[in-house]
Deep mutational scan, measured.
Amino acid sequence: NKFNKELQWATWEILNLPNLNEEQVKAFIDSLKDDPSQSANLLAEAKKLNDAQA
């Protein structure tokens, strides 16, 4: 289903952001699991944090 694909993509993207630490990655992944419908928003937040920590 649509959410599953978005969830998988967002998870992969977050796991490959170079500037997030392990705790941050885990928090984002946990949030994705809690509410897959928010995957696009969570991914945007993760990318923002990644850029801020570059």
Score class of each variant (00 low, 15 high):
30 D>A: 14
50 N>I: 01
3 F>Q: 15
42 L>A: 05
36 P>V: 06
32 L>E: 00
16 N>T: 08
38 Q>L: 09
11 T>Q: 05
11 T>D: 03
26 K>H: 10
40 A>K: 14
22 E>N: 09
4 N>A: 11
3 F>W: 04
52 A>R: 14
11 T>S: 06
22 E>S: 10
43 L>E: 01
3 F>P: 15
8 Q>S: 06
8 Q>N: 04
34 D>F: 09
10 A>I: 12
14 I>T: 01
46 A>S: 02
11 T>Y: 07
42 L>Q: 03
14 I>A: 01
36 P>I: 13
29 I>M: 11
21 N>H: 11
17 L>P: 00
5 K>L: 02
17 L>D: 01
37 S>Q: 08
44 A>G: 08
28 F>G: 00
42 L>S: 02
12 W>V: 11
50 N>E: 01
43 L>R: 04
12 W>G: 14
40 A>Q: 11
22 E>R: 09
23 E>I: 09
10 A>Q: 03
36 P>L: 09
13 E>K: 08
20 L>V: 01
7 L>I: 13
19 N>D: 05
11 T>W: 07
25 V>G: 02
24 Q>A: 02
37 S>R: 06
54 A>G: 11
29 I>Q: 03
35 D>F: 07
10 A>E: 03
40 A>I: 10
23 E>V: 13
17 L>Q: 03
23 E>N: 10
8 Q>M: 13
16 N>E: 05
14 I>G: 01
46 A>L: 02
7 L>G: 03
51 D>K: 09
28 F>Y: 05
36 P>Q: 03
14 I>N: 01
16 N>S: 12
45 E>V: 12
28 F>M: 04
25 V>H: 07
22 E>K: 13
43 L>N: 01
53 Q>N: 06
15 L>W: 06
30 D>R: 06
3 F>H: 15
21 N>I: 07
31 S>I: 06
34 D>V: 11
17 L>M: 14
1 N>I: 04
50 N>R: 01
38 Q>N: 12
51 D>M: 11
7 L>Y: 05
14 I>W: 01
17 L>T: 01
42 L>K: 06
17 L>K: 01
50 N>K: 01
39 S>W: 15
52 A>Y: 13
8 Q>R: 07
53 Q>G: 06
47 K>W: 05
30 D>L: 08
39 S>E: 05
30 D>N: 12
15 L>Y: 07
1 N>Q: 05
52 A>E: 10
12 W>P: 03
20 L>E: 00
45 E>T: 07
2 K>P: 14
34 D>L: 12
20 L>P: 00
13 E>T: 09
19 N>P: 00
31 S>W: 11
16 N>Q: 12
25 V>A: 11
38 Q>T: 04
1 N>R: 04
1 N>F: 01
15 L>G: 05
17 L>G: 00
40 A>V: 08
2 K>E: 15
12 W>M: 14
43 L>K: 03
46 A>T: 00
39 S>H: 14
44 A>K: 08
4 N>H: 12
32 L>M: 14
42 L>Y: 13
16 N>D: 05
6 E>Y: 11
38 Q>H: 07
15 L>E: 14
53 Q>D: 02
39 S>Q: 05
14 I>H: 01
27 A>Y: 11
20 L>F: 01
53 Q>I: 07
38 Q>P: 01
49 L>S: 02
8 Q>G: 04
30 D>Q: 13
44 A>Q: 06
27 A>N: 10
5 K>Y: 04
11 T>A: 05
4 N>R: 03
50 N>S: 11
28 F>T: 01
36 P>K: 03
23 E>Q: 13
30 D>M: 09
46 A>V: 02
8 Q>Y: 11
31 S>Q: 13
16 N>I: 06
10 A>Y: 07
18 P>Y: 06
44 A>W: 09
20 L>D: 00
20 L>N: 00
22 E>H: 14
29 I>P: 00
49 L>N: 02
15 L>P: 02
46 A>M: 02
7 L>K: 02
28 F>H: 01
33 K>N: 15
4 N>T: 14
35 D>Y: 07
41 N>I: 12
19 N>Y: 13
19 N>E: 04
48 K>S: 12
47 K>I: 12
9 W>L: 15
47 K>V: 09
31 S>R: 13
3 F>V: 15
35 D>Q: 09
9 W>S: 07
44 A>I: 07
48 K>I: 10
52 A>T: 12
28 F>K: 01
12 W>Q: 15
11 T>H: 03
33 K>V: 12
31 S>N: 08
36 P>F: 10
29 I>N: 02
34 D>G: 10
5 K>Q: 14
37 S>E: 12
38 Q>G: 07
44 A>L: 10
45 E>F: 05
11 T>P: 02
10 A>G: 04
7 L>Q: 04
23 E>A: 14
30 D>W: 08
38 Q>M: 08
11 T>R: 04
35 D>H: 08
12 W>N: 15
24 Q>W: 02
13 E>F: 06
9 W>I: 10
51 D>S: 07
27 A>K: 10
1 N>G: 13
36 P>Y: 04
24 Q>D: 03
43 L>A: 06
40 A>E: 08
4 N>I: 14
23 E>P: 08
15 L>D: 05
53 Q>T: 05
51 D>N: 10
48 K>Q: 07
53 Q>M: 10
5 K>G: 13
4 N>Q: 14
3 F>N: 15
13 E>L: 12
28 F>E: 00
22 E>P: 13
40 A>F: 13
33 K>A: 12
34 D>M: 13
42 L>V: 14
40 A>L: 14
19 N>V: 01
47 K>E: 04
